[in-house]
Design a protein around this nucleic acid. Structure first.
Lengths: 163, 163
DNA sequence: ACACTGACTTAGGCAAGTAATAGTCAGCTA
DNA sequence: TAGCTGACTATTACTTGCCTAAGTCAGTGT
């Protein structure tokens, strides 16, 4: 079947026969980052951490986990490891977000705002503001036409695969 | 310290002393959903699954995992379990997304579009379209002023806690 | 030359996620 | 009333995530 046909998202259930999600991007993404430690490492990268001890201390992870996770994230392409040197100091390594890593930010922001809303009795501990205008930043679903899109206003469309 | 002060996000690192993220909403959110199975169960819920066998079959999870995860998601408040009955059939249970569960959708969409972009050699298998206008749906970072916000244009602000 | 420090690695162990297989149980249907 | 079916539960086993504690190693400062 190579035509695109809506299988329907929305709260309402649509008939979809025995179609089963394959090559799902969500699952592929989770193969890369599926551990708590990977998410907090990335959080700290967005928060500005670059050195090994910054990651392990601020993310409150043990050294072995920090080392393993950093290695994995570098090998997956979300971080790059590069030597650097502060004056009067020896050469060190630091880890910086790649474009691939930076583009995962909406996931973290969406998780944060969901946690803020549903899991924080005492209100959120931090907030995100647009540097330019100071307004709060949120993750939103929008269509290319510019409309804000709610959970029940989405059609799921099957696409033909290249290979 | 009760004044709100920027600790700076953005690619650039800002001095932040020994501040360590506590009560982090991302971590709290991950306590609720941190397994692959929870994510795929939620995916299938968005895709329209409601019955036990729909979840286990479409998400390709074993029965025990499906049962455990559904129980957890119900107890966390993302799904509700309710009896229903089709004519001529016995009473069954079905699982439906609550508002809390539905609001996690931006996280899944953000994960999907990241996977689409970075992990799909042959292009994405499905696409999301706005029901009303047919345009592709994406998860975006925006401020309350309506500006689209990039990863490097965010200030992180510490907030005083209620308790 | 020697200690110090940052950045790891190794070893040992507990807990949790997942699968496969088999069994249970409550209605319906015949 | 006996069988069927959907929705589970129980058991066993494997694998992975994470921790603590200890060890390694290279480059600097003294």
């Amino acid at each position: 079947m190579s035509t695109t046909e809506p299988i329907a998202m929305t709260g309402a259930l649509a008939p979809r026969g025995d179609w089963v999600a394959r090559h799902c991007s969500i699952e592929k993404a989770l193969e890369v980052v599926h551990t708590r430690s990977a998410f907090v490492i990335l959080r700290e990268a967005y928060y500005g951490a670059t050195r090994f001890d910054e990651f392990s201390h601020r993310a409150r992870l043990s050294d072995p986990v920090t080392a393993t996770r950093l290695r994995e994230l570098v090998s997956a392409g979300l971080l790059v490891r590069e030597p650097y040197r502060e004056p009067g100091q020896r050469t060190r390594d630091r880890y910086r977000l790649t474009e691939m890593g930076a583009e995962l930010l909406p996931v973290l922001v969406a998780l944060m705002q969901w946690g803020d809303r549903w899991l924080q009795e005492d209100g959120p501990p931090v907030a995100l503001r647009h540097t330019a205008c100071g307004e709060p930043v949120t993750a939103q679903l929008r269509c290319a036409g510019g409309h804000e899109v709610g959970p029940g206003e989405i059609d799921l469309v099957r696409l033909p695969r290249a290979r």
